[in-house]
Simulated scan of single mutants.
Amino acid sequence: MVKIGNISLPDFPLLLAPMEDVSDPPFRRLCKMHGADLMYSEFISSEGLIRDAIKSRMKLDIFDYERPIGIQIFGGDEEAMAMSAKIVETVQPDLVDINFGCPVKKVVCKGAGAGVLKDIDLMVRLTKAVIDSTHLPVTVKTRLGWDHDSINIHEVAERLQEVGIKALAIHGRTRAQMYKGEADWTEIAKVKANPNIEIPIFGNGDIDSPEKAVEYKNKYGVDGVMIGRAAIGNPWIFNQIKHYRETGEHLALPTLAERAEAAKNHLTWACDWKGERTGILETRPHYTNYFKGIPHFKPIRQRLVTSENLQELYEILDEVHEIQNQEI
């Protein structure tokens, strides 16, 4: 069993990474159904929360069936981070997570996300400000360092543990790498092997198959793995990993009918959450992912991404459901 403060997770938990414009309630619900052990909101700007920005506030929506769930915040100002942690606490998530890993320019330019990797003292102060303003467990997601010449994750891990974080997720790339190249898990393994580190260490980056998840667990000794891009269009990956880890065998790949069912659920839950028009528009990008690699699917996909009628979309997905229940 892995513990984050008072939260108990199974041995070698599988975490759904917080992803902007992806990790919303409908997507999280699918991942939870298919075996995700811990999930996070999309990252939320501390400044946006304080200004009462509607987009930031909507990201605070969490539901009991998602638990345990964390809300992730980012920012570069101690007071704003402390205030936003208090706001987050009002919706009663299970934990607060701080993003010190987002490499996107508009975030980094504000001295937030991976931008904080250049200033460990500031990172520590921001983290302490959040910890001091909430009774919830506080965790951090970050990267190895700013670039190859400034890998500082080892100091970061010790100092953040010292101020009181309860777990650390490490993406095995630097900010300079963005999402390119291979993630370097050897540095993550060194953090985990450090005798001074007592908190759970979760590895993130390039986990895209059951074999890789099990291989990395055995090779690098992490307490669990965080999965991001590989879950897009494939929420089944969590149970696939669990089944492979327990039996050494592969679960059957989702059939076309199961993919259509997932897309239909996603659409329904998006409309329930944000209203029909927005729900239809926000589900569109996911159809490509759910039906990736399906031969001769382009005409159907075209209909799915152009229809603005909910009933018509259900009928198209029912058609897909009726196509031979083939395995992909």
Rank of each mutant, 00 (worst) to 15 (best):
P68I: 12
C102L: 12
A17R: 08
L122R: 15
E246Y: 00
G233V: 13
D318H: 12
G101E: 01
Y65I: 13
F100K: 05
A183H: 00
D97H: 02
E308L: 13
E276C: 02
K242Q: 05
D77S: 07
E315K: 13
K32E: 11
E78F: 07
P68Q: 13
G172A: 03
P18I: 08
P285M: 05
I241M: 12
N265A: 12
G221Q: 04
G203R: 01
E211I: 07
N234H: 15
V88G: 10
G248H: 06
C102I: 12
E182Y: 05
D208S: 14
S209I: 01
A129H: 03
F291K: 07
I207S: 10
R303V: 09
V222F: 02
G76Y: 11
W146K: 04
V96P: 06
G113M: 13
V91W: 11
K217L: 00
E322I: 11
A17C: 10
L95I: 11
K118P: 07
I165C: 04
D77T: 06
T288H: 05
N265C: 09
N218F: 09
L304N: 12
D206M: 11
T174H: 05
Y220E: 03
L281I: 15
A129S: 14
I227M: 12
H321E: 15
N309A: 00
Y216A: 10
L267F: 05
H148A: 14
